[in-house]
Write a protein that binds this DNA or RNA. Structure first.
Lengths: 194, 194
DNA sequence: CGTTCAGTTGACTAAGGTCAATTCCCGTGG
DNA sequence: CCACGGGAATTGACCTTAGTCAACTGAACG
């Protein structure tokens, strides 16, 4: 398992590619380590990278005034980025912070555009990843719109056990859209019922 | 203004294309009329079309039990589809219903895949549209997570005045994630303040 | 003119927000 | 090894707001 086997495996789930195409892509990847609490991106910066996570996990959050809400968590074996800023080239509203010491592979925006133009397969990969992200965002929208915080918490336990297992309660609460106090009470209610 | 000028204009905002590429694409489009109250898609069906709206507008909603929530509205000059079902080829959870008599252009899934393979420009267009959708979904997520119903209502007034102007209150309420009674009271509070 | 349905209003309930106090957990330094 | 400090989590009391259910109004349509 070298540094590139996980990302190569990820990409293989979306498109087939030749060694040449792969080598061209791999050449664009740069390895980086981030300490726990370190930032991959800060609000106000333009997001210049899509980042594949080899080790560790990240929290994506934004602040309004002194309030903070968690947009998402990203674990090893997946990409993390602020897609909105990356695509629009506008300053990000989000922060991306390492929740543990992490090892990542960065792909720069400019390099990705080159990859898109050089090899149709990367264009196709870009489309498929975007489609894949849409599936997840549609599901998140549905959850936020439809579910009570309690129902959503139960759903996260089922669909994303890593979140429950690894993330402090207060961040889970802000991911669900409630206060830590509320989530604490929800858990209590659930344990009484069960 | 023929039937294809609006869609051609829309696509031009994302990619440049030759006449040949355009003709190949246009050949896949099929015109259809839908009466007010008619369905473009019903929950349980696989969504086989991306639909460009020449006239009229649509509501996308899903039901759980006897509850109904509005995922989105789509107006003329834009596409409408259940992207999740269209991409995943799984049965849709959503319904898409015409809120007025409508004129649309349908593009079938199979034809779109052909277009992707035949001309790189359509592959690129597919990617860019997917990215564009992500921008909107990220914004919707943020709104649902961050804003009170009142704040969200104010945002919709500013960002999507067509929704306020054309959509019955009860559907706006279900788009914001509240009951019609709640939205009625929110409007009352606002009018008192103003 | 009456039916229907959207919208409003009222009374009550339930649930989350807020603020404050307390407990728990864990790492650090004596 | 133990005591302390600090942040996370919990709990309590109270407030605010949306949900629920029901009644009423008003406009649209036949």
């Amino acid at each position: 398992m070298d540094d590139f086997s996980a990302i190569r495996n990820f990409i293989s789930r979306f498109v087939s590619f030749s060694e040449e195409e792969w080598n061209a892509h791999q050449a664009f990847l740069s390895k980086r380590s981030i300490k726990k609490g370190g930032y991959l991106l800060r609000a106000g910066e333009v997001c210049n990278y899509v980042t594949f996570i080899n080790k560790g996990f990240f929290r994506i959050y934004h602040t309004v005034g002194d309030e903070e809400r968690t947009a998402n968590f990203a674990f090893d074996g997946n990409y993390v980025t602020d897609y909105s800023s990356f695509v629009s080239r506008l300053p990000s509203a989000d922060n991306i912070v390492a929740m543990e010491d992490a090892e990542v592979l960065n792909l720069h925006y400019d390099d990705l555009q080159k990859a898109y133009e050089q090899y149709p397969v990367w264009q196709k990969f870009g489309r498929k990843v975007a489609e894949y992200i849409i599936l997840f965002m549609a599901d998140r929208n549905r959850s936020l719109l439809f579910l009570t915080p309690e129902q959503y918490y139960i759903k996260v336990m089922k669909d994303r056990p890593k979140v429950i297992a690894n993330v402090p309660l207060k961040y889970i609460a802000s991911y669900l859209g409630v206060t830590p106090e509320a989530l604490s009470r929800i858990r209590k209610r659930m344990s009484v019922k069960a």
